[in-house]
């Protein structure tokens, strides 16, 4: 069958829907944030389900999904948050590859669980790459659709894909690998080895308290409201690199959890960093949700990540050969 390239109309854009891939690497030294899907696990699973390489561009839909009209046949998967997706009025399953026929209409409804939902389409969403990535970074108007969220009236293009690979349809992520989202979660952190920036009570406060995600939270970071983490006054912190998951602490002691669009460098001392394997759960938090932190070693954190990686590879092997679709 001839390769196809789906055209999709954006009827309604949703609350904040952006094109994302796995991020823009290699430019942090120039101050360029990494961006990319907040929930990398959901984005990767969506891509594998429809037969894409992990780094194909997906739509990240936040809180309230878009309404999309398919001018052509397409193959898609919806992963991440359950924002009540429907196709032509019928509920569709998450974490499963399905076909949509020409004239199909994808809508979303209320948020059931999670905060960010991913739409992967066979062939990936086509957008020009900027600095090697299709990820949208809105503040600098870089990547995606002119560096901005979707708008009503936009026309999206799927990359070309082999319409004959019907055996993918109905394939789903095994239940044992399905993430469980909750509005009250525990995140594991690696504590920063330096103690000079905080009073002794700060770490025990962090590990004993419940923090609430503040309304002023976005793809850059979540402001967390809870017992303050007392800084030690004497040491001046000189700006240094940050990682996604860093819990940085401004003078008021209220931690900020840095996420996908984080600044590459930070002037507030870090007290800990959320481990990579838990970042997808953090990505599914919204304002008002709560989090507790438990300590974890680096070795343990990396072992957990590798285990998840191997389990996913066993269940849904990565697609590496078909470069055409990228």
């Amino acid at each position: 069958m001839k390769p196809k390239r789906a055209e999709i109309d954006v009827v309604k854009p949703g609350w904040l829907t952006t094109v994302q891939d796995l991020g823009r690497h290699g430019y942090q030294r120039y101050g360029m944030p990494v961006s990319g899907a907040m929930d990398r696990f959901a984005a990767i699973v969506g891509n594998r389900l429809v037969g894409n390489p992990d780094g194909a561009a997906v739509l990240e839909c936040t809180l309230k999904g878009p309404e999309l009209f398919f001018r052509d046949d397409a193959r898609l998967a919806v992963t991440g948050a359950d924002l009540s997706p429907t196709l032509d009025g019928n509920d569709i399953p998450l974490w499963e590859c399905l076909n949509v026929r020409r004239g199909g209409r994808l809508r979303f409804g209320m948020r059931r669980v999670g905060f960010r939902c991913y739409l992967a389409i066979a062939g990936g969403f086509d957008a020009p790459t900027a600095l090697g990535s299709r990820s949208t970074h809105c503040p600098s108007q870089t990547g995606g659709l002119d560096g901005r969220p979707l708008r009503a009236g936009d026309l999206l293009f799927g990359g070309s894909f082999d319409g004959g690979a019907e055996q993918l349809v109905g394939r789903r992520l095994p239940d044992r690998l399905l993430p469980r989202y909750d509005r009250s979660i525990i995140l594991r952190v690696v504590l920063d080895s330096r103690r000079e920036f905080f009073q002794d009570a700060a770490v025990s406060t962090l590990l004993r308290s419940v923090y609430t995600v503040a309304p002023q939270s976005d793809r850059m970071g979540y402001r967390l409201i809870g017992p303050p983490l007392p800084r030690a006054g004497a040491h001046h912190f000189i700006s240094e690199g940050t990682v996604t998951g860093t819990l940085q602490v401004p003078a008021d002691g209220q931690p900020i959890l840095l996420m996908a669009d984080r600044q590459t460098t930070g002037g507030y001392p870090p007290i800990a960093a959320v481990i990579s394997v838990d970042l997808p759960s953090a990505a599914q938090l919204g304002p008002g949700d709560t989090v507790r932190f438990v300590s974890c070693s680096i070795v343990e954190a990396q072992a957990l990540l590798r285990t998840r990686h191997h389990l996913l590879d066993a269940a849904l092997p990565p697609i590496t050969v078909n470069r055409r679709s990228l």
Partner: peptide, 22 residues
């Protein structure tokens, strides 16, 4: 090694924990 970020007096090296351990 996905990013190398020089700052005032330090360098932050970002690595893929699947491929590297500390």
């Amino acid at each position: 090694i996905v990013d190398v970020v020089p700052t005032y007096r330090s360098i932050t090296v970002h690595y893929d924990p699947i491929q590297w351990d500390l």
